[in-house]
Structures are given as structure tokens and as C-alpha cells.
Amino acid sequence: MTSAAIEVFLQTLIAGILLGGLYALIGLGMTLIMGVMKIINLAHGELMMVGMYIAYWMFVLFNIDPYLSVFIATPILFFLGIALQKFLINPVLKVDSILPENQVILTVGIGMVLANLATIFFKSDYRSTPVSYATNAFYLSDYWRDSPIELSLSVPWTVSFVLAVIITISLWFFLARTDTGKSIRATAQDTDAALLMGVNVKLMRVVTFGIGSGLVGAAGCLFLPIYYLFPSLGGQFTLIAFVITILGGLGSTIGAIIGGLILGVFESMTATYVGMGWAPVGRFVIFVVCLIFLPGGVASLLKRKKLGK
């Protein structure tokens, strides 16, 4: 390999990891909801779109930086998620019907309404946030004068990635250390046992949906400076979140993080070496391969290793 080829490869790898960190955040919300409620939230991407629009308008109207909007969008999305769960999804859980997939179809309906309302209110224009640091980058040659290869690191991507990592770590702390977090994990593992142990399963469901929505709202804020915004962007992110969930293993937090990184790297590799338009196909190739050869996702690999010890 020539140095130019190595440069392209490393650059792609870096871009993939940065993208993967953000993907992991999107996947985490879905994995949490899936683990606790055993339903897929097909409105996940649309919730992210709502978060992005909140951050966008905060920036345009009040000149609040999208990264600060995390503190605004996340609570709003949290309560939106709680409301959706309480008033729409919970009633359906009780209804008796032929198809048990009703809840999934319901989330599709919610997503449709959200995406369409966004189209009506904000038009279907592509928007981007003109933050001042959008095109800034760190260059390797600035720090290491004689480096044989040149690599660059975009500032907004890096900041988004770091924030995503911070949010992920704090989520992990929340799940591992606090009572509520432990109750959520107990509900995910075994609803009946959790109920017997005195966990308020119903409340945990509502809270989980809220947290999942809040996470994806935060992810939306982090995505805003590096991506453009349009009302129908939700669908593609729902699929990404879902691919990550499958890749990582259902309901597994660590799996979702690893899954997000794998997907990000793989996607940017396909974009560089096969062609931009094929990146989404790469996403699904990984998905299908995973379903066939590794149905339990990365989480099952981790478990196997633990058992082997």
C-alpha cells in the first residue's frame, strides 16, 4: 500500500468511528425500549427528527448552540416519550386482537404523524445549521510536523462524538448504579420476576420509553451540526437504530455500542471503496449476514466468551 492508500484507509476508519459513536447513541435508545417493552419502536427516527428540529429552532431563534440544546431537547423528548407510552402504547397493550404486532404498527402510525406534521409546519426543505465551527478541523500535520501521512479531524464531528461518549457513559452509570436503572434492567431481564420483587414494572416501561426518546433526542442535537435536516429523515435512522439493535444483540447496551461502531466503520468503508450511494446497502448486508450467522448479535459472542472462562 502506498502512503496515499493508507491515508485514505485511516481517514475512512476515523470517519467511521466518529459516525459509529453517534450511531451507538441512536441504537441505545432503541435497544433499551426493545429490551424492556419487547416492542420495536418504529417511530424512533422520527423522534430524533423532532429533537433535531427543536435544536434547529433554538439555534435560529435564540442563537443557542446545538450542543447546548441537548439540555433542552432531551427533557422535551423525554416527556414526549412518556406521553406517547402512557396515552397511546399502553392502551394497545391491553387490547386483545388477532395480530400481536399491533403495537409495532401503532408506532408506525405515530412516526407517520410526526413526520407529516413536520412537513406541514416546516416545509420539506433541506436545512442545515450554519454554526461557525462547521468547517473547522484538526490536522495531524499541525501537531506532528514531519508526519508521513496527513489526517484531519473535523471539529463538529469530534465534539459530537465526545459528547455521545459522555452521554453513553452517564447512561451506563445510571443503569448500573442507580435504583431506577437497576429496576429497568431487572424488568428487561424478566418482567415477572421483577414484578414479584416489587419493581413497579408499569412505571419502568413508561420511564424507559421516556429515556429512549430522550437519548435519541440528544443524538439528534449532536447530529444537527454535521448533518442536514429534513422532515422525512426519520425513516433511515429508524432503520439504522434497528440494524444496530440486531447487530448488538437484543436489549444489550454494550452490544449496541459495539454494533454502532461496527456499522459506522463498515458504512464509511463502503462509501469510500464502493460508492456513496451503496453505503445504505452495506448497512443491510451487515444486517442480513448478522441475522444468518450471528442471530444473537455481538452480545451472544460476549456471553460465549464469559462462559468459556
Binding site: P91, V95, I98, N102, G109, I110, V113
Partner: peptide, 25 residues
């Protein structure tokens, strides 16, 4: 005109909550 998906979505939600087996069912 542009709002038809909203109506469809609301119709879907209403149907699932109140008539889970559809109009004929």
C-alpha cells in the same frame, strides 16, 4: 393535501385502539 399522512396515521392509531380487528373483523 400535504396532511394526508397525518390523517392516515391518526386513523391507524384510532383503529388499532378501538377496532383492533378492523371494520369487517
Amino acid at each position: 393535501g400535504t396532511a394526508y399522512q397525518t390523517f392516515f396515521g391518526i386513523l391507524l392509531i384510532v383503529i388499532i385502539i378501538f377496532l383492533p380487528n378492523g371494520i369487517v373483523g
